[in-house]
């Protein structure tokens, strides 16, 4: 068996890394998610990570089909439960790069609890959320990030709940790399994803990825008119308070880019069982067999 055994984040001779899957995406023509899958491909290729050293884990929803459209290892799990599968997989073999993908319903609705706990653990995962502010696969109900007042099939008179603020939540939960991209700017987005992959610790890249079928409010044009780049605005990515302040901006100007980054020990760094390398490669069974039973005397 030739299994990844060490985080292969070092630069080597340039590889021709092919991530294209033979499976064609089944998203609607014009869906924002095309830009996201292209950005993920570009990010891993730019880092020269071979496909067999990447696991992409997703939940359920339009965007969660993404692992099928890449040629890496993939796990397409249950609605809202991508994160714990990814955590288990990463802890079992932290020689692999683990990317978690999904939508706003999957991550900020049904799976929100898992996301927050993964962030505070600072596991070295890269979480790419395709946020279209709507439930697409179930044909257009309000999502946790739908705008106040937005009319959807489940809220014909308008949403009456304050939307979740993923960036502020991630900052509060202890994520150590917090970014927002826009699928209408795939070059910028792939840089943010690559940054997340290079970052040691939990990286969130929340992506405005418009649903062209069910969300007629948060369209490509809507975002194009509003987004600006934090790196062009003199934002200090080491300042948590300023990052919180930027996270509150969601009006005529909406920030994208890196909000916050900090170095903190990862869960993998602190977990004693991983000191000897990936669990997958450690010996299994009981050592010191004679003495083990003595405690039961």
């Amino acid at each position: 068996m030739s299994l990844a055994s060490a985080p292969p984040k070092t630069a080597g001779p340039a590889l021709k890394v092919v991530y294209k899957s033979q499976t064609k995406p089944t998203w609607c023509p014009g869906c924002g998610d095309y830009g996201v899958v292209a950005s993920v491909e570009r990010a891993v290729a730019s880092l020269q990570i071979p496909p067999h050293e990447v696991m992409v884990v997703s939940g359920i929803g339009c965007s969660s089909n993404l692992p099928h459209f890449l040629s890496s290892y993939g796990f397409h799990g249950l609605h809202g439960r991508a994160m714990p599968v990814a955590e288990g997989a990463r802890l079992a073999n932290h020689g692999m790069h683990v990317i978690v993908t999904g939508g706003d319903g999957d991550g900020w609705g049904i799976g929100l609890g898992h996301a927050l706990h993964a962030m505070r653990r600072n596991l070295d995962l890269t979480y790419v959320v395709m946020d279209n502010e709507i439930y697409g696969l179930t044909t257009g109900q309000a999502s946790p990030t739908s705008t106040l007042g937005q009319k959807t099939k489940s809220t014909p008179l308008g949403v009456i709940e304050e939307p979740v603020n993923p960036i502020a939540l991630a900052l509060a939960a202890g994520a150590t790399y917090v970014a927002r991209g826009f699928s209408g700017d795939p070059k910028h987005l792939s840089d943010l994803i690559a940054g997340g992959l290079k970052h040691r610790g939990f990286a969130l890249v929340d992506v405005f990825s418009p649903c062209v079928t069910y969300n007629h409010l948060n369209t490509f044009d809507f975002f194009r008119q509003r987004v600006y780049k934090l790196e062009n605005a003199g934002h200090d990515t080491g300042d948590l308070v300023k990052a919180f302040a930027r996270a509150q901006e969601f009006g005529p100007k909406i920030p994208t880019g890196l909000f916050y980054r900090v170095d903190r020990p990862t869960y993998e760094d602190l977990e004693p069982a991983l000191k000897a390398g990936p669990l997958l490669h450690q010996r299994a069974g009981i050592r010191g067999k004679d003495k083990v039973l003595d405690e039961f005397i």
Binding site: R81, G88, A89, L280
Partner: peptide, 19 residues
Amino acid sequence: AEDELAAINMAIGASYAGV
């Protein structure tokens, strides 16, 4: 884990990864 949903899904993820 944070709950049993996470516990079983973590175990599935770890098993998928080979342990």
